[in-house]
Amino acid sequence: MEAWVRKLVTGCLLTLPVAASAVAASEQAVRVAVIGNSPPMSYVDESGKLTGFNVEMAHALCATMKIRCNLLPTSLDKVVDAVSAGEMDFAVVSLLATPERRKKVLFSKPYYRSLSIWLSKPSIKPGSPRTTVAVVNGSVQAQHAENQGWKTKRVTNHREISTSLVAGDADATVVPMLTAVSLMEKPSLQALGLESTVLSDPLISGDVCISIHPGRPELREQIDAALDEIKRDGRFDRINSQFLPFRLL
C-alpha cells in the first residue's frame, strides 16, 4: 500500500515539469489579431463561434506553419498600431497595403485584391452634397471620405454601418467589396433599395495583405510560404466558397 502511494506521488512529481512546459508553450502561442464584427470576413456565428473568411484563413495559416495561435478580436482602428507595437504578432485582417501602413508594419504577399463600393440610397451619387457617408474608423474608406471632403458618420464596425443606414443617420457608405456583398444580403438594407457603384480610386482598391510585426521578418517568410501552399492545395478556394458567392482571386 505504502509502495503504491509512493509510486503515485513520484509519478505525479515526474509529470509536473511536463505540465509546466505545456503551460509555457501555450503562453508562447502566437498572437493573431482578427476583426470581431465584420461579416463575412470575421464574425460570431449563431452558435457563438468566431468564424469568417479571415478567421478560417488564420486557422489554415497556423496549421500550415505548425504553430499555436491565439486569435484575438481587435477593432479595425487599433489593428495596425497593435501589430506595429508588437501587441500582436500578426493580423489576418483585410488591410490594403497603403504606403502609410507600410511604415508601421510588414506586409505579406497579397492574398487577394479588393475594390471599394459606394452604397447609397437611390439617386445619390458619390460626392453628392448634403450626403452623410458612414465609414469605419481606421479604414482606408474613412481616409478616402475625409480626402474627398465628404460629411462622415464615424462607426467602429461594419455592423454599425447598416444600423446607421437603417436609422437614417447616414445616406450612403463606402465599404470594401466583400462587406458590400454581406450588407446587400441583409433584408433590412434591401428594403432601402441601395444602389451600388464601384469606386476606382487607388487608395481604396488594390492588394489585401496580412500585416506582421516589423520585428519578425522570419514570420513574414513563413506566412508567405504558407499562403502559397494554401492557395496551391485548394484550401483557399474551399474557405472562399464557405463565405463568398464567387472566387476572390
Binding site: V181, M184, F246
Partner: peptide
C-alpha cells in the same frame, strides 16, 4: 422582386469589376 434583382445585379457589377 426588385430587391433580389438589385442584389443579383450587384454581384454582376462586382464580377465585371473583378481584377481577375
Amino acid at each position: 422582386n426588385p430587391e433580389n434583382r438589385r442584389q443579383a445585379l450587384f454581384i454582376v457589377t462586382l464580377m465585371a469589376g473583378h481584377p481577375s
